[in-house]
């Protein structure tokens, strides 16, 4: 338990908690980025350099961007006024607290865990590459297939429903009385007129 580990773990957990509890979805996604960068730092702390960098590349560079795009495309970038928690939230938190207690008890009381700390393993990217290309080549191919299938599936799911134009699908209703779409975040009316009225 070194000091860097404690600091990184604290930042990661705090950011994860923030990602799950902030009201504004964009703030949540930014906290999520911090949590995953913290996890990558934990991997680096555990001498897993390649995995740490891959984590940053995939989570910060790709998944966070996807989430941000999804937030803006579903027009939920504004802070919601209604409740953000589902009705039965108390049970959910109770169950998760129970899960944590059980896991923590198991970790702290287990005698199966190795007690002595081994020295840092000497793994290079070359080792990982050779393992991927020899021993793990079948999983690698399957992952490639899975990613292709997921990509095609995601495109098909997110396509507009067939047979409908934009107008019929109700996306392009011209309604002069409605407030402008919130994807562009107009400043709230109090912020605009507050100073002048």
């Amino acid at each position: 338990m070194s000091l860097p580990f404690l600091i990184i773990a604290f930042v990661t957990l705090f950011a994860a908690a923030a990602a799950m509890s902030l009201r504004n979805l964009v703030h949540c996604s930014l906290a999520f980025v911090v949590a995953f960068a913290g996890l990558a730092a934990l991997y680096l702390n555990l001498d897993a350099q390649f995995v740490g960098f891959a984590q940053i590349l995939v989570y910060v560079g790709a998944i966070a961007i996807l989430i941000v795009f999804a937030i803006l495309l579903t027009r939920s970038g504004d802070t919601p006024n209604e409740a953000v928690l589902a009705p039965g939230w108390f049970y959910g938190i109770a169950v998760s607290a129970a899960v944590f207690t059980l896991l923590g008890w198991a970790v702290l009381s287990s005698s199966a865990l190795p007690k002595e700390v081994s020295s840092a393993p000497q793994t290079t990217v070359k080792n990982i590459g050779e393992a991927l290309m020899n021993k793990y080549v079948l999983p690698l191919e399957i992952i490639g297939l899975l990613l292709t299938a997921a990509m095609i599936g995601a495109v098909i799911i997110a396509l507009r429903e067939p047979g409908k134009t934009k107008m019929e699908a109700g996306e392009l209703k011209i309604d002069k009385t409605a407030p402008p779409s919130s994807i562009l975040h107009p400043p709230s009316s109090t912020a605009l007129t507050g100073g002048h009225s």
């Binding site: 980025v33 350099q49 960098f53 590349l57 910060v60 560079g61 790709a62 961007i65 290079t124 990217v125």
Partner: peptide, 24 residues
């Protein structure tokens, strides 16, 4: 770093987040 090139591309990904933060 042993994975220097990966590091370069990984940190490059954070620039997109900052651009989004500024714009939003």
């Amino acid at each position: 770093f042993d994975a220097g090139l990966l590091f370069f591309f990984a940190v490059g990904g954070a620039v997109e987040i900052s651009v989004f933060m500024a714009g939003w």
